[in-house]
Design a protein around this nucleic acid. Structure first.
Lengths: 245, 245
DNA sequence: GGTATAGTCTTGTCTATACAACCGGTGCGT
DNA sequence: ACGCACCGGTTGTATAGACAAGACTATACC
């Protein structure tokens, strides 16, 4: 039933209501924390909490000394989560298996060196894995690793743990950049992924950082016919979802 | 210099330190709010704020009556933001232009009806736009709109506002689902996007909801050679960035 | 006129306290 | 053996108040 809703929750809905009704426009200043506390008959801390959560949701923006304002709508971007391929496969109830195709040290090419913040030709570790979903190839993972931050990378077998999982455990990742694009596979990639023709592939380039610096640069290639990146994330959600039936 | 850092910020760093150092393991319970307040010599509210922010970052999980625990690492997924194409183009300093190719009402096909939660063959509004970056096609936008929630859709010209911007203004979007895949364009799509050959394309399927229900279903097709989806989002970051130099 | 200064309003941080809601165990009574 | 009430510990919500820090304005001074 959710008979009682928290005061700060009620205030959040009221504020969203003002915006949705058009009474508060983009960039417009809204009443101060003290004014809201008076209007809703609560303490400033409670009004403040409502504001804080709406700021986190991107509905409002605040600035010290100036006031609180309705955020510009155009900043409404949506988010897509990118997950570990092994987890995704297992959650579908399928069997995940990885073939280790290569694991060696090599000099960094230009793009990789830049991505990892190393000098060109600097020695880096490299791995190539093929991930299979019920024995069908779904991802060709080409990964380059900073040997200074992960010295034991070449000793791994990656049968129990994916490289991503291993790296997460030895160098907790703090930040990740992604680029996603559609490309045609090279003949070699086509052969490795067991594609009958040069079908479009989805390529995800991922760079990850730990607190000590750039850890890894990976190119993940997926056959377009066997892989789709799907995700969802609510935007201004938390406020309106557990309504009474 | 950032000479003084807030107390709750210092506590956050200390807690993250415990986790990164391995003293607090996955799923392990951490000291209670009162215990942390005593340890750090602050009030419970301050310790609580540090915990709250770490929970939002996915570092910790809490449950009322039970305690606070280190979040499982495997939930370390990364996020990718999907933005409005016009904003992206303008932020690159390029000129955005949209060609309205079609704007009509039609009966919903099966996939669209399901996506919008309507009956098959129900009347829906449909628009087809070509987005150009400096006069080069970068996105073919096929969009289906729920006519009940957006009755004035067919009266728009979409020259000043993209459909996404218009929909955001009339039915504030609360949630969005995305699917991303790599496909080969149909001959018609190839012609509209002015592609010299059937190059791989990136397709984004986006469903959006407002508080009143499913608003819109869009298929966004991008030539692989002219569009890359790039994003980054920090994970457990906010704690470690504004260190003194 | 231009520059300080003081004052006011805003948000940001922090404290101390109170009570509610929830979980797990303990022990009692049936 | 089973159910029930109770209790201590935990997180969740809310309050009232204090001071700091930033942005702006009005005033006084040179």
């Amino acid at each position: 039933m959710q008979v009682v809703i928290a005061k700060f929750e009620a205030i959040k809905r009221a504020l969203i209501g003002e915006i949705e009704a058009g009474r508060w426009l983009e960039h417009q200043q809204i009443p101060s924390e003290n004014a809201l506390a008076a209007r809703f008959g609560c303490s400033r801390m409670t009004a403040r909490r409502a504001l804080t959560e709406l700021v986190e949701q991107g509905v409002l923006v605040r600035s010290q000394g100036l006031g609180t304002f309705v955020a510009p709508f155009r900043s409404q971007s949506s988010l897509l989560t990118i997950r570990n391929i092994a987890d995704e496969i297992r959650e579908r109830g399928h069997r995940h298996r990885a073939q280790l195709l290569a694991l060696d040290a090599c000099p960094a090419d230009m793009e990789t060196a830049i991505a990892l913040g190393l000098a060109p030709q600097a020695p880096i570790y490299h791995s190539r894995l093929l991930h299979l979903d019920n024995d069908q190839p779904v991802q060709l993972e080409e990964r380059y690793v900073n040997p200074i931050l992960v010295p034991d990378y070449l000793q791994q077998s990656f049968q129990q743990q994916t490289p991503h999982e291993y790296l997460s455990s030895v160098a907790p990742l703090l930040q990740a950049h992604h680029q996603i694009e559609a490309i045609a596979p090279t003949p070699e990639q086509q052969r490795l992924l067991q594609l009958s023709h040069a079908e479009p592939c989805l390529r995800i380039c991922r760079r990850t950082w730990s607190s000590l610096g750039a850890v890894s640069f990976a190119r993940l290639l997926h056959p377009g016919s066997r892989f789709r990146l799907g995700g969802q994330l609510p935007l201004g959600n938390l406020s309106l979802e557990k309504e009474a039936p």
